[in-house]
């Protein structure tokens, strides 16, 4: 426990004017310091692989089909109810694929729970942050707007696996 000291004003501080000069010198010194303001639209935001931007769907190496098997786990994990999935059967080996996969970007809170829940590496948080349009309908993203080649998300995937590795030792299972 430490009792905070209440400062009584000195004569100089009571006179006030010298203090105004001192405070102004504090303010004017800021003119010559490095500027910290970012000129946003011209100067972009620094994005790294840690940045959790909007979720995107990964394509398989063939560049056509989604990695998603429409298991619905991201839908179940989403705390904002932003994801809607309708599955359908397919002749491919994985047997199921999404017929409809929509993320309502107006609802999405970029928490990253979908990325964590996905058992197929099909959804990842991209570094895309900017989101603006003229209608609400345009911001409900469907597969065409969501799919990205795996290479575009590779940095994030690598980071996610790195975190996962450090996260727990791969040795023991309970």
């Amino acid at each position: 426990m430490v009792i905070v000291k209440r400062k009584e004003l000195s004569l100089r501080e009571r006179l006030y004017l010298p203090e105004v000069v001192r405070a102004l010198s504090f303010t004017f010194r800021a003119l010559f310091k490095r500027k910290i303001t970012r000129q946003y639209p011209e100067e972009g935001l620094p994005v790294t692989e840690v940045t959790r931007g909007q979720p995107r769907l990964t394509l398989l190496e063939d560049g056509e089909n989604l990695a998603c098997v429409s298991c619905g786990l991201c839908e179940a994990a989403c705390p904002a109810y932003a994801i809607t999935i309708d599955g359908q059967e397919t002749d491919r080996f994985i047997e199921r694929e999404p017929e409809r996969f929509e993320i309502d970007m107006l609802r999405c809170i970029l928490c990253g729970f979908c990325e964590e829940a996905c058992p197929k590496d099909a959804i990842f948080m991209s570094d895309e942050l900017e989101l603006a349009d003229f209608t609400r309908e345009a911001l409900i993203y469907d597969i065409d707007k969501l799919k990205r080649p795996k290479a575009a998300l590779q940095k994030r995937i690598d980071y996610f696996y790195k975190v996962n590795d450090r996260w727990r030792k791969p040795s023991s299972t309970s």
């Binding site: 786990l73 994990a77 964590e116 058992p119 996610f160």
Partner: peptide
């Protein structure tokens, strides 16, 4: 949640992944 690389390889862990989520 189990680690991701185990989810890909182990049935058991995949079940846990579904259970927990």
């Amino acid at each position: 949640l189990p680690p991701k690389h185990k989810v890909h390889t182990s049935m058991e862990e995949l079940i846990f992944q579904f259970k927990i989520v």
